[in-house]
Design a protein around this nucleic acid. Structure first.
Length: 274
DNA sequence: CCTGCTTCCTGAAAGC
DNA sequence: TGCTTTCAGGAAGCAG
């Protein structure tokens, strides 16, 4: 499941191949993935546009085009975006194909088809609610300890759903939230406002650390995630708790447990996380 | 406004 | 062996 480090890795692996390229043709095999405008309009307006800049915000990828247009893609659960050289075969999960002026193509594939694509003028981006309302993201200037600790103080929900709320912190998903809570030694069931100043500082540092590590390892590949060149990430080899239920904790040796928190499968060390 | 539940979607894995 | 059920989860939509 692509979270901020995975989407950032995709951005980095696509930038050099995509920026400056003109989209010469768009094939749409599953039009319901396109949320705005209609599929025929999407296809017509996108044809002959040049990609000027590839930007990431949270888990969104934004392709800034000429004519002040922006193509916005969110991969959700199983979306994949990858560069394919001319004539390369593609599987049945490839739903949108962007052909480029050098004969290659940018392909959007998605097994569970929950991903979303938009095309709109730059001035209309506020219409994408999830993008417009996104909170500060880890490693950014806006994501300060003061902001983070102050935000936790006001929340009566459990810490895990608070961290997953994109309006409060942009870019975190299930894997990195479980990891950050494990590093900070905080139980995912804790009420956010009960977290004290010291714990908030540890958690803040842990969030920045797991995101930075995730990016430096090229993302976490459990099953579906691949970068823009089709390569797997390696952060799955560095996880403390996620996907490690019934295995020993790296720190204390206790058995990693799994429970449901806020409707999400949650991995944690019952001994280290209080 | 805040919080939590439901929905979307389909391949893989577990259950029978 | 093969069919059926459950599970995975990001985020919008909605109820209370």
């Amino acid at each position: 499941m692509p979270e901020m480090p995975e989407v950032e890795t995709i951005r980095r692996t696509l930038t050099d191949k995509i920026e400056g390229r003109k989209i010469t043709r768009v094939d749409i095999k599953l039009s319901r993935l396109i949320k705005w405008p209609t599929a025929p309009e999407f296809q017509a307006v996108l044809t002959d546009r040049t990609v000027e800049k590839l930007v990431r915000r949270g888990k969104y990828l934004l392709f800034y085009l000429d004519n002040s247009l922006v193509l916005v893609i969110h991969l959700r659960m199983t979306g994949r975006l990858y560069y394919a050289t001319q004539g390369r075969e593609y599987d049945k999960f490839t739903h949108i194909l962007f052909f480029l002026d050098n004969g290659d193509a940018l392909l959007y594939a998605d097994t569970r088809t929950l991903g979303t694509l938009y095309l709109m003028p730059q001035a209309e981006l506020w219409r994408i609610a999830g993008l417009a309302s996104m909170g500060p993201e880890p490693l950014s200037e806006e994501f300060t300890l003061e902001y983070f600790a102050g935000m936790l103080e006001k929340r009566q929900a459990k810490i895990k759903p608070v961290l997953l709320n994109q309006k409060l912190v942009g870019g975190l998903g299930n894997i990195y939230v479980d990891e950050a809570l494990a590093i900070a030694g905080i139980d995912p069931d804790r009420i956010a406002s009960s977290i004290n100043e010291t714990e908030a500082k540890y958690l803040y540092q842990a969030i920045n650390q797991v995101i930075a590590d995730g990016i430096s390892h090229g993302g976490t590949t459990f099953r579906d995630y691949r970068d823009g060149a089709g390569q797997s990430g390696s952060h799955q080899h560095h996880l403390h708790v996620y996907g490690r239920a019934n295995q020993p904790c790296h720190r204390c040796g206790a058995i990693i447990a799994r429970k449901e928190v806020g409707g999400r499968g949650t991995h944690y060390c019952p001994n280290c996380q209080k």
